[in-house]
């Protein structure tokens, strides 16, 4: 029963991998398939593999995929245009042919009554697996340990990037800063915080310099790029105008004036 519930889900999820455009979605669909497989392993009297499938495959390998996806760029999606001529059609035809042949052939096979693992699992599946693994397959097991070490070292080698310049120290950074100030006049100190000496202390309001002019470098470049910077004096005029429309005395200071109103925060209104 479990099988008949899970099998359609797995096939649908697997087919989804073929068609979704974003890699993250594919990874999620793959997770569904793997988890379903874990359940099937449990059904098939393989509790150890059930655990391993969840821990190693879904937990470790798939997470590794997601890490890499993050490094590469989560929102990078595949183009749907096929670049190799005839590749998609041929792949579909050959894939369908292979599937048809395999399914046809397998469906003609009569497997007979399953022996079942009750006898083999007597005394516990994990103990029996360990018995076999450390007796008959001990050399293969040792070989896989070597393989895993090799893989770890290989990953380190591949991921390692050779440093071509000496690492910068605090002293060298400070010296560089002073050199820049001497050569180009770049301010050596930290940038002023936004909202200082301004009518508002919001991050989109630049600080006022002692002479009353606005310090443009005090607001985030991101906000500058979005065009949502407000100058302190302009904001004050806006509030007065609103109050006048409300029939209040514009000279009376409101209690809650730190929040920028939605209509007032657009650049069009500033003009």
């Amino acid at each position: 029963m479990t099988f008949w519930i899970l099998a359609p889900i797995m096939v649908a999820a697997a087919l989804g991998i073929l068609f979704v455009r974003k890699a993250v979605h594919a990874a999620m669909l793959l997770a569904i398939v793997m988890l379903s497989l874990a359940v099937l392993y449990a059904v098939l009297d393989a509790p150890f593999l059930f655990a391993v499938q969840i821990i190693v495959y879904t937990g470790a390998i798939l997470m590794l995929f997601l890490f890499v996806l993050m490094l590469v760029g989560v929102d990078a999606s595949d183009s749907v245009v096929e670049t190799i001529k005839g590749q998609r059609a041929l792949a579909t035809i050959l894939g369908l042919a292979l599937g048809a042949v395999l399914v046809t052939a397998l469906s003609q096979v009569t497997l007979g009554t399953a022996v079942g693992l009750d006898e083999a699992n007597a005394g516990g599946n994990i103990e029996q697996l360990a018995n076999i693994l450390f007796s008959r397959y001990v050399f293969a097991f040792e070989a896989t340990s070597a393989l895993l070490i090799t893989a770890a070292i290989g990953a380190m080698v591949l991921a390692h990037r050779e440093r071509l310049t000496p690492k910068e120290t605090q002293a060298s950074l400070a010296a560089q800063r002073m050199r820049d100030y001497a050569e180009t006049g770049k301010h050596p100190g930290p940038l002023p915080a936004p909202g200082v000496y301004a009518r508002h202390n919001a991050v989109d309001t630049p600080a006022l310099l002692p002479d009353g002019s606005a310090a443009e470098s005090s607001v985030s470049r991101v906000l500058v790029a979005r065009g949502v910077i407000r100058s302190g004096p302009a904001m004050a005029d806006d509030i007065d105008e609103v109050r006048r429309q409300l029939g209040q005395d514009p000279s009376e200071m409101p209690e809650t004036s730190g929040k920028s109103g939605a209509p007032a925060s657009t650049e069009e209104d500033v003009k």
Partner: peptide, 19 residues
Amino acid sequence: AILFTIGCVGVLTRRNAIV
């Protein structure tokens, strides 16, 4: 077999190396 075939076709049609 079906999952294997789907995997095959996926290898042949998807272009993102991670997929």
